[in-house]
Amino acid sequence: MLRVDSISIRYERKTIIQDFSFSVNEGEIVSIIGPNGSGKSTLLKAIARQTSVSEGKIELEGIDVKSMHPKQTARKLCMLSQRNVAPDDMTVADLVAYGRYPHKKWFEKLGKEDDEIIGWALDRTHLSYYKDRRVASLSGGEAQRAWIAMALAQRPKILLLDEPTTYLDISHQHEVLELVHELNQEMGMTVIMVLHDLNQASHYSDRIVVVREGRKQMCGSPSQVMTTDMVRDVYQMNCEIQCDCKEKKPRIHLLHTARS
């Protein structure tokens, strides 16, 4: 469905991403992990066409995204950043309605079908009760769900999430990731997300891409990627791995910093 083919990204003379390749199949949840400053968010922004690629190409359904009209891309991809800010007076319903504009012509008003999709997106994210509330008045978890509802109204094939649990407490992190998993399972929505928490990545992902200093270190299933060697080499931490044999989802228990 999505193919990142030998891309490099440079800012001035600094190389952020170097000769990076991986692919994402339809209906997968793929998490991108790695230390701070390794290039994870830059990689996600390149997929969303928010950052230019210096070399290589990114293909969506066999088409180079560079050749796609921005509105065409917006119908297929939706990216939510770490921090999403709405105007102080914007209601949840107004925010979700913005997801319909990639499907409308210039100055074309929203119609009955759009209203139905907006209502559906609010219902799927359990926000119908909050539709007239200001986004600024919501809790962190509620606000994140509102932005995901906007993305759903856009009806993208791929949802891109850049650290969706950042700034949320543990319960809201769980709430947001459970919603993402639910959307993936029930709607077949493909999800690519950047995560810091290794156990969250292991639990919710079909495959994991490990980034280190702008290069792909590993790519595979959680059981293939989440190893003591990977954690020591990439994060300089020793750990123990506990594996749920039924789900084949490793759980990482960090111990202490690994000595050089």
Rank of each mutant, 00 (worst) to 15 (best):
Q185F: 09
A146P: 01
R75K: 15
A74E: 09
I32N: 04
I170T: 12
D169S: 00
M150E: 03
L183E: 00
D115N: 13
V191K: 00
I33G: 07
K157W: 11
D5V: 08
P250Y: 11
L179D: 00
M237K: 10
N25P: 02
A93D: 07
V53A: 05
Q18F: 03
L160Y: 04
Q50W: 04
G27M: 05
L177Y: 01
D114P: 01
E163H: 02
E186L: 12
T42A: 08
L255F: 11
T73Y: 12
H181D: 15
A146S: 09
M1L: 11
R13S: 14
V4W: 11
L60E: 04
R145S: 00
G111T: 09
S52I: 05
P156L: 14
S8T: 15
I29K: 06
M193L: 13
D132N: 12
Y204L: 10
K14N: 14
R10Y: 12
Q72S: 13
R207S: 02
E28G: 06
T15H: 11
Q82W: 10
K14M: 13
Q224D: 14
K76R: 15
K104C: 05
G62S: 12
Q173D: 10
R145A: 00
D115A: 14
N199F: 08
S128A: 09
A86C: 04
G119S: 14
K216R: 14
C78V: 15
D169I: 00
F107C: 10
H103K: 12
S67Q: 09
H181S: 15
H174E: 11
S137F: 02
R207C: 02
I148A: 00
N199A: 08
P35M: 06
P70W: 11
S54R: 04
E182R: 15
L77S: 01
I158L: 12
S139C: 03
T91M: 07
V4G: 10
T51N: 10
L122K: 01
P156E: 14
Y204P: 07
I252S: 05
I63F: 05
Q72A: 10
Q200Y: 13
K249T: 13
T190H: 07
M226V: 02
H69L: 11
R232H: 09
F20D: 03
S6Q: 15
L152R: 11
L60M: 03
G39K: 07
V96M: 06
L77W: 01
S8I: 08
I58T: 03
T15Y: 10
C78S: 15
I118G: 05
T190K: 06
K248F: 01
R133V: 02
K248S: 06
